[in-house]
Design a protein around this nucleic acid. Structure first.
Lengths: 339, 339
DNA sequence: TTGTAAGCGTTATCAT
DNA sequence: ATGATAACGCTTACAA
């Protein structure tokens, strides 16, 4: 494995000259540059990024922090889709992605430490936002650029990308109400996530504005997984009040819900209408094709990377970005019919 | 940002002593250990991984090389599922994941260089296997442990994890033949991928053993994407010979194919049966639920990481692992009926 | 235009 | 049980 020194010796110049050739320093004559480059090729020289990082204090890599374990998180296409956006943006600017995680809270904190304090990354993307997050607190103390996906609980100076989730849930609920539904269930994510809290807020607002009562039995909080959507929907179906429509704040949860609904012999949308969130690419292939709120996940990822990178490079423009949402109308919602 | 030197100064010992405390060296007295640890806590010391890597020549990170751009690759759940398995295994053993890519061939090679020659990773997982792959060639010259997902074209001493794809495709084809199908299309991936070549092989073998003719018009090679499955199926449907069944070597492609089939008014499985590969978790929710060959993607990822890590640590046991496959019978295949 | 030397934060090899 | 010193491979003042 060739080093700068070896190149230098072979060419008959000093190591610093070789270093300067690498950075194409204007002060080095074309002649020596040529000589040096020739030998570099011959010896298949490639700079040692680690050594370089040690002095430059930059690793040209961005750390990704998943909620709970990456093992579980990757089960939801939201994360791969967001990662696609992130990857696209970072690679264009010459950055790598370093992914770590940890199952327990302590492991999570530790992995953040090893990334940040270990100086392995130039910046961090936190893939979620929840209240009282110890990871976030550490990050704020650590003096490293970071960007969150999701609105911070108190957004003092935190760079983030999000949708207007209150508005999005409001519109989704309104849509159902317009279709004549009065008993609308909410299959939501964990309430300590700001995304869940916001969607609950929008749901509530729409109900209240339409003089519909908020019913606790119709509101359930589960993880963003298919299996949890199934269980959550079961619970709703076992309540005394029967909903004629349900809002799932994630398509994956909606899939589980659809299974639960089908199992008791109900038809979608005739017996129960359902609308999802996040518009997973496969939702259009379901039976029936799932109506879903598209939150532009790819764009969220790309914007998060963009904001972060500006931050890293010190060319801060904005410190937040709100990505548009749009209901994709398919076949899982219909007019309410009395039965 | 505290360093070993500062700790040393503050405690009144030498840097090497601090270093020894960190590695819990038996020769350091409990007393000094305590003193040093106290100051480390106070100053919130955390070792600089970069500096450490420079001398230890190990980064405790594994590089992931995607086929073409990660941007595109992440559109197929195969990769996130494999990554899940990889993540699980690597994190358990204290390794991070570094992902890079590049769209053009040259960019790809460059990113591999920057990972390997830049000494940023201790080992590599190549997420695909194709013939005449310049990336593979470089890797072999580079003297770094790596593991491939997919059988190498000539498997001289290359560590890899794969299914028995010939067998898997053979069984899938046999299944269709048993159901009475005689005109079976193959919607395959790019033929320079060994996975595609092997599945073609199994398909061919089953046809031949049953005295069914191989028909070029019924065989199409496209990318492992939904849109490409759609286009490929269109092409097949436009051929003179009408298939009564189709094998898609990836579920995502199958989704596209199903759309193409539906568009010309054919019903699945009555008019055309279809079987996919990879058993994407969502395939059971399609209409009709897609019969698919489950290749145990998560396990493939986990095994690849396991084999690689053994290699990295020098405790090599096996250098290949074949993961089981299994047909998951659902509703997209039925008996052939003359029409 | 090029060379010398210090330094990035560690670890490892000698000494003591 | 602890300290000095060199080394890892590179960059960057400062000299020349």
């Amino acid at each position: 494995m060739a080093t700068i020194k070896e190149i230098a010796k072979k060419v008959g110049v000093s190591p610093s000259t070789v270093s300067r050739v690498i950075s194409d320093d204007a002060r080095i004559s074309e002649e020596t540059k040529k000589k040096v480059r020739k030998i570099m090729e011959e010896l298949k020289y490639h700079p040692n990024a680690i050594a370089r990082s040690l002095v430059s204090k930059s690793t040209k890599t961005i750390g990704i922090i998943m909620p709970y374990s990456a093992d579980q998180a990757f089960m939801n296409p939201f994360f791969s889709e967001a990662l696609r956006g992130i990857a696209k943006c970072t690679y264009n600017q010459g950055y790598c992605l370093l992914i770590t995680n940890g199952v327990t809270k302590k492991e999570q904190i530790n992995s953040v430490y090893s990334l940040v304090m270990g100086r392995r990354v130039d910046g961090i993307i936190l893939m979620y936002s929840k209240e009282n997050d110890p990871v976030l607190k550490e990050l704020q103390n650590m003096d490293i650029p970071f960007c969150m996906i999701g609105r911070p609980v108190d957004n003092k100076n935190i760079t983030y990308v999000d949708n207007d989730n209150i508005e999005a849930a409001y519109k989704a609920t309104e849509y159902l109400i317009e279709k004549g539904h009065k008993s609308i269930a909410l299959l939501n994510g964990s309430m300590n996530l700001t995304v869940s809290a916001d969607r609950y807020e929008g749901y509530k607002k729409a109900l209240e504005e339409n003089n519909l009562s908020l019913n606790d039995e119709l509101i359930v909080s589960v993880e963003f997984l298919q299996e949890d959507g199934y269980k959550g929907m079961k619970k709703i179906l076992n309540s005394k009040i029967k909903p004629s429509a349900v809002i799932a704040t994630d398509d994956l949860m909606a899939y589980g819900a659809m299974r639960a609904i089908g199992e008791i012999g109900y038809k979608i949308p005739e017996d129960i209408s359902i609308i999802g969130f996040n518009n997973i690419p496969l939702s259009e292939f379901l039976f029936p094709p799932l109506t879903s709120v598209d939150i532009n996940t790819y764009q969220i990822g790309a914007s998060a990377a963009q904001l972060l990178l500006e931050n890293v490079k010190g060319e801060v423009r904005a410190n937040r970005k709100i990505v548009d949402t749009k209901i994709i109308y398919r076949k899982s919602v219909c007019e309410y019919k009395k039965s």
